[in-house]
């Protein structure tokens, strides 16, 4: 049995102990892995630092081996800087951050998988702009990462975090749910609200297929990080407003697993279905692997 197997369990942990939920996740997971709480905190701190460093490391001139990826994060950043976006500065920076990190990953930079490399842009895209605007202390961001990992582990245990197993709902969908829980935590919400945010985020991504063009973690992956980040904002705001998911998070996760099992293998990372099967994608694949 995994450490955290239900969202209900996380809600109960918060209700039944005076210790904050993130601290309980930290203590239980450190004990399970045979490391001290201090070592665990150091490791989570290193993950946060690596996210920040990866974001700072973005190079607008970089492009991936296939040349499909590069420059869009910078394009978005410049557009936001002009101040004429539809959604305003914060959301603009979230979108730009997600694309920048997705591009860094495609271009073989050092990133933090969260929960996977393909979905690595979602978490930093919401955390870093939030921290900048709210002057969030480092300890709080680390606490938010524990919250995200606790909910993420439930999804990994009950369903999957692998596109090859359950489609992109399991990768970008899980990243989005983890980010939503982290945001609810940072904005003062309780475990029940985190649970609703997780349920809402996953419901909104239910059925998303994994269809990487030419089998590369590039198209549609990079832009999907932005969608996952936006979905996390949307789910967190709803949960903080007091909107509750009509379907409990655990049942949503179980449904996601069932949907993954129903998915054709063509839609599970083989690069043979979805946009990967479009005429343009097939032409690209032939050109790229033909040369």
């Amino acid at each position: 049995m995994a450490l955290f197997y239900s969202v209900r369990q996380l809600e109960e942990m918060e209700m039944q102990s005076a210790l904050p939920l993130w601290r309980q996740i930290l203590l239980a997971s450190a004990e399970e892995s045979g490391i001290t709480p201090e070592q665990s905190l150091e490791k989570m701190g290193a993950a946060l630092d690596a996210m920040i460093a990866a974001d700072a490391d973005y190079d607008p001139g970089q492009s991936s081996h296939s040349r499909l990826i590069g420059g869009d994060g910078e394009r978005m950043r410049r557009y936001v800087a002009q101040g004429e976006t539809i959604c305003g500065d914060f959301v603009g920076r979230v979108i730009s951050g997600a694309i920048r990190m997705g591009e860094c990953n495609a271009c073989m930079h050092r990133i933090v998988a969260a929960p996977t490399a393909g979905a690595c842009g979602v978490m930093p895209a919401v955390l870093l702009p939030y921290a900048a605007d709210h002057a969030t202390p480092r300890e709080e961001l680390i606490a938010a990462l524990y919250i995200a990992s606790g909910f993420g582990m439930v999804i990994a245990t009950r369903a999957s975090i692998s596109g090859a197993e359950a489609g992109c709902q399991a990768e970008i969908g899980t990243a989005s749910a983890m980010a939503a829980a982290a945001l609810v935590y940072l904005h003062g919400g309780n475990a029940q609200q985190m649970s609703s945010a997780v349920a809402i985020a996953l419901k909104n991504m239910m059925g998303l297929v994994c269809d990487p063009v030419a089998g590369l973690v590039e198209v549609p992956c990079v832009k999907r990080n932005a969608a996952g980040a936006m979905n996390a904002l949307c789910a967190a705001e709803m949960a903080l407003a007091g909107i509750r998911s009509r379907i409990p998070a655990d049942e949503v996760i179980d449904a996601m697993r069932a949907v993954g099992a129903l998915m054709s293998p063509l839609l599970r990372e083989t690069g043979e279905g979805g946009v990967a099967a479009s005429p343009t994608a097939v032409r690209f694949r032939n050109d790229f692997f033909g040369k």
Partner: peptide
């Protein structure tokens, strides 16, 4: 399964199986 399988690994992209592995 460890929480650092959810936040982590820190790795050079783009793919945990095809690059980090």
């Amino acid at each position: 399964m460890d929480i650092f399988d959810l936040i982590g690994p820190i790795m050079v992209g783009p793919s945990s199986s095809h690059t980090a592995g």
